[in-house]
Amino acid sequence: MNSKITLLLSNLNEQISFIDLEIDDTIHKCEKAIEIILISNNTLKKIITKNNFKSEQEEILFFKEIKPQFTSKLIYYNMIYKIEMKKPNGGHRILKKYYNNELIKLKAFFDNELEFYKYYRSGSIYLDYKYFLRGKFDIKMSLDSYYFETDRNFSTSHDFKVAKILANDLIQLYLENQLLIIDNKDTSEKSQHKPNIKMTWTGSKVALIELMYALHSEGVFNNGASDLKDIAEYFEHIFEIDLGQYRRAFLEIRARKSERTKFITALNDTLTKRMDNSDEVI
């Protein structure tokens, strides 16, 4: 059972990564992500329904650590979808107020669930038998009403709360990133200090596109929250270059018969040679 779930989660993460790479529009991206997450969650439920846990420890592990990884993705993309659908039309000031209000809502959840949040974040286990075993709920624990409407064979009193905590971490990151983007736009509209030296990209556009996709895949910008389109526009701005149809260029890179990561490989070889050169002056 564990191997099936591990493979299921791995495939889900891979599909979501592909969606993040290929779709720029946030709303469309959320729609596609939710679609595949629902399929994965349904498959996960079937696996659990057909198989019994070998021990209470295995059951606790599943509902405390494994299932929330699936559920949190659904919560995250559904919440981002709602946030973007309700986003008001207006200037930067209106948008900043909107995103800040969403952050306040996240804090409200944190305040309401402070006791359990501390328990989970501290790695405590002494109440796991109540929180993460099916049918072991305690009405005195101020349970959310939705719990009584869930499938008791596939839910415990607190597995959804864990998923909510994980999702909220990502939602907070998303909102803070949106605020940062707005601040950066505000700054760019004002006279800002610019380096005296202008850096011009003198390599090929294909090489820059290959580098751009590699950096996006590694998630090095804004903790991986930056869209590919944002990175492309940033590269075009700082290097004053038109990357054109970079998605088509990436398809051509991917279809190379020989070395697909030609530029990245060349970078690695060049840097390695430099490191190996004992006469190199740092």
Rank of each mutant, 00 (worst) to 15 (best):
I182K: 11
N153G: 05
Q178T: 03
L175N: 04
Y147W: 03
E149W: 09
M199I: 14
Q178H: 09
K198V: 13
L208M: 12
D138Q: 14
N168E: 05
I165H: 03
F137S: 07
D144H: 11
T150S: 13
F148W: 06
S157I: 10
P195E: 12
L179E: 01
L173A: 06
K140T: 04
L166T: 00
D138N: 15
N168R: 10
K136Y: 02
K194L: 14
E176P: 00
D186K: 15
H158Q: 10
S191P: 01
F148E: 03
K205Y: 05
D183E: 13
S155W: 05
S157R: 05
N177I: 07
F154Y: 12
K205S: 07
G203Y: 06
L143K: 05
Q172S: 06
D151G: 06
N153S: 06
I182Y: 06
I209S: 01
M141N: 10
F160T: 00
I171N: 03
L179T: 02
S157Y: 01
T202I: 13
K164I: 01
A207K: 04
I197D: 00
I197M: 11
L211A: 10
L180R: 14
K136V: 00
F137N: 06
T150Y: 07
D169Q: 13
Q172G: 05
H158I: 08
D183P: 02
E189Q: 14
K164G: 00
L166H: 01
E176I: 11
D144T: 05
I171K: 09
S155F: 08
I139F: 06
N184S: 11
V162Q: 02
N196Y: 08
L170H: 07
R152D: 00
D186T: 13
K198T: 11
I139Y: 06
N168Y: 10
F154L: 15
S157P: 02
P195I: 10
T156S: 08
D159W: 11
F137R: 09
V162N: 02
S188I: 05
Y174M: 07
F137H: 12
Y146V: 15
A167N: 01
K198I: 14
S145E: 10
M199F: 13
S142K: 15
F160A: 11
Y147G: 03
S142M: 11
S142T: 01
D159N: 15
A163E: 01
Y147T: 01
N168L: 11
E210A: 10
K164P: 00
K161H: 08
M212V: 04
N184F: 13
D186C: 14
S142I: 05
Q192C: 10
K198Y: 04
F160C: 07
K194E: 06
L211D: 00
Q172I: 06
F148K: 08
S145H: 11
A207N: 09
I139W: 03
K164D: 00
H158L: 10
N184P: 00
D151C: 12
V206Y: 08
Q192A: 13
